[in-house]
């Protein structure tokens, strides 16, 4: 898919190293494969609207950024519930397909590779129901 992952929390890079070596390597062979950013004081989180200044932590925000540096998707959860990686991958595949087709194809709700895409244009106005059903989602 050609996607780079960056993770960030307010912990220092030194704590990231200890966490990777002492716990994450026991979950993932070889440890975390992507950079873990140190965002002490939450400067980066603040810029993305995900720094909780009362708690002093970056909340669980996830941003998909395209090759032009534009934010295509964001998801923000409170700390108690984790993300679903498959959903992030689905969204990236959908945005990549839109980009490859220059926007000639758009991805309806529930789209996954192999499912029906829509081709926006005058002919489709008011006729989406003919080519796409909720059961396609």
């Amino acid at each position: 898919m050609g996607v780079e992952v960056l993770a960030a929390s307010v912990d220092s890079q030194f704590v990231h190293k200890m966490w990777d070596e002492n716990e994450l390597m026991k979950m993932v062979d070889g440890g975390v494969p992507f950079p873990m950013l140190a965002d002490a004081a939450g400067h980066v989180g603040s810029a993305y609207g995900v720094y909780d200044d009362e708690a002093g932590v970056d909340i669980r925000g996830r941003f998909i950024i395209d090759p032009d540096g534009m934010i295509q998707a964001m998801e923000v959860l409170t700390p108690t519930v984790g993300r679903k990686v498959d959903e992030t991958l689905r969204q990236i595949r959908a945005f990549q397909r839109v980009r490859e087709t220059g926007g000639a194809e758009v991805m309806p709700a529930g789209w996954e590779p192999g499912k029906k895409v829509l081709k926006p244009g005058p002919a489709l106005v008011g006729r989406v129901w003919e080519v796409w059903k909720p059961s396609d989602a």
Binding site: M1, G2, V3, E4, V5, L6, A7, A8, S9, V10, D11, S12, Q13, F14, V15, H16, K17, M18, W19, D20, G30, G31, V32, P33, F34, P35, M36, L37, A38, D39, G45, Y48, V50, A55, V57, D58, I59, R60, G61, R62, F63, I64, I65, D66, P67, D68, G69, P79, R83, T88, I92, F95, Q96
Partner: peptide, 29 residues
């Protein structure tokens, strides 16, 4: 500043232009 596979590095987002990036914040190690 970042930790990446045993090394300390620096990450600048604009160095990733031309690539898809997933940026994930999380509450803590």
């Amino acid at each position: 500043p970042a930790y990446h596979k045993g090394d300390f590095t620096q990450v600048k987002l604009s160095d990733y232009l031309g690539k898809w990036v997933v940026l994930c914040f999380y509450p803590g190690d």
